[in-house]
Design a protein around this nucleic acid. Sequence first.
RNA 1: GCGGGUGUAGUUCAAUGGUAGAACGGCAGUUUUCCAAACUGCAUACGAGGGUUCGAUUCCCUCCACCCGCUCCA
Length: 586
Amino acid sequence: MRECPLTKKRVRADQVEPQSGTVFSYSGATSTVSDKDVSAFRFDLADTISKLPNDDLKARAGIEAGDLLAGELNAAKVSAFFFQWRDSSEELHPVRRVLDKFKRTHEGKESSERFAVLLPTGKPPESAHKIAQEFYQSRGVKTPGLLNEKIGKIENSTDFHPESGVELTEARPFNLMFKTYVGPVESEDSIAYLRPETAQAIFAQFKNVLDTARQKVPFGIGQIGKAFRNEVTPRNFIFRSREFEQMELEFFIKPDEVIEAIHGSVATLGTLDPKSKTPEPQPNWGWESWHQYWVEERVRFYEGIGLSRDTLGFHHQTPEELAHYARACTDILFKFPFSKKDEQGNVKGDELEGIAARGDFDLSQHQRFSGKPMTVFDEELRAAWGKLPKEKSDTLWKRYYDHRKNYLTKCAKPDETAEQISQQATEDANGLAKGVYIPHVIEPSAGVDRLILALIANAFSEETKTDDKGKSETTVTLKFHPRVAPFKAGIFPLLKNKPELVKKAQAVRDLLRPWMNVYYDEAGSIGKRYARQDEIGTPFCVTIDFDTLGEKPELLDTVTLRYRDDGKQERLKISELRDWLLAKVR
RNA sequence: GCGGGUGUAGUUCAAUGGUAGAACGGCAGUUUUCCAAACUGCAUACGAGGGUUCGAUUCCCUCCACCCGCUCCA
């Protein structure tokens, strides 16, 4: 991380465009003092010296201060004299006072900070002066006089900010992880880092789960948990925060070479039709199909809790954006109210989830650094491999070998030789014949807090109504999908001063309570109670009225069921209420 | 991290160097009351710490929080 000292803009140290041109550098700047100030000071100084008590002192002070009485004058110079005379005799104090006054008037108005700026060849030096003066002004020097200008040519330097041309600060690591100490004493041994993502535990436990849960590839392990990142700017409510909840799935699949060995070829999924159901997973799917499948499956999840497809966006990471080990990554975005528009005015959205195809990188890393095998044994593969024509098995062997070698080379430990790497890759490829391989992984990883924010933003709806008296009122309704509404139903007795209504309403409440979150309310008018539930997003309200008690005999034991989004009402038998609601909220 | 702004009740907004008000909301009550009805009563606030002052919510300083912009988004 490097920074332009003038504009404070930051760039990544490894991403600076090389530039050429003329460099103007300065060792610092000092206040230029106006002629008027200078003559006033000199008059004062000469006057003070002339009033010293004896001629001897006058002569001494006159000689020593000679430099100040003639030639160039600035705060730094005066300051130097002031300190030179720090321990002088008491008789010289009036002189010191004059110096002190001048020094103080211009104090802090000098800078010894180095500054350099790169200009394209041909630009006049004045623009460099201007930028440098601007810089020293920002450092408190009001009328900067530049010191020790040096001019030189430079080629392909990455030390200057691409926009401002200003020399960047030293590269500083940007701390992304939270560091802490475990135990009561802070020492080197007890340093710990809070995890920046949750997935690593899954890989560490991969073998245990495989063995104990009696799973076969393909299968997945999901996890939800806290992660911590030292974000530069936590912003936008809970969209980006330093502590957040992450939910991740590591879905383990067979490498394409294994699929091809068993099934002869790798099936492609083609483009999925958004309207049709996600197809049933097939045994001959390769990583591309599985990746596509999970993207579609995740979108369906979002749709299932109320985020319709048109509120979402997608971003397919370009090869440059991808991490070196990733094969593909699709981000699912939500169009938040704060999301920025592009040039055409379209809202792209902000990331809710990334679905990455990560190959066998993670398990391979764990295997190499823990020394424990992360391979699986596949009976079907071993049987199929034996029946392959030699030509085919050679091709697959070679492809697998190349992938492994590529990975091992990229992630080589410092002491590993090319020979060792080839040997390891050969060993890995030979494993195929024995039915042994490291699974590949598809990783959907989502931010839970962001999802909650998206659900709230999506549900928020305001309506301004004007009543008969001309009084306008704005009401807020959170139109949550019933599945994610915090309360599923509000239960009200029409009147609270009628014990029969209250008793019946409480019975309905107790009937539903073991099955779902319900909100019992008897305070205020019925309209107000509906409004309160609208505001917290409760999708249904159930009112117990006189008909429930049998005022009209045919309506005995029925209730008013009222919908949040349109206010419509219908009557429903109490005996059917629970199943009716469960069907809506599950 | 930089620049700017704002901090008074749950919310929106007043006033004040000496007792901090309102509206809406909340709570309790009256009322056969189905979309924030009405009436009665009650409770709730000066972001934190220093300083100036007889006295500070008000003036000054520091900190903190939030907002906007820059930045960041590995």
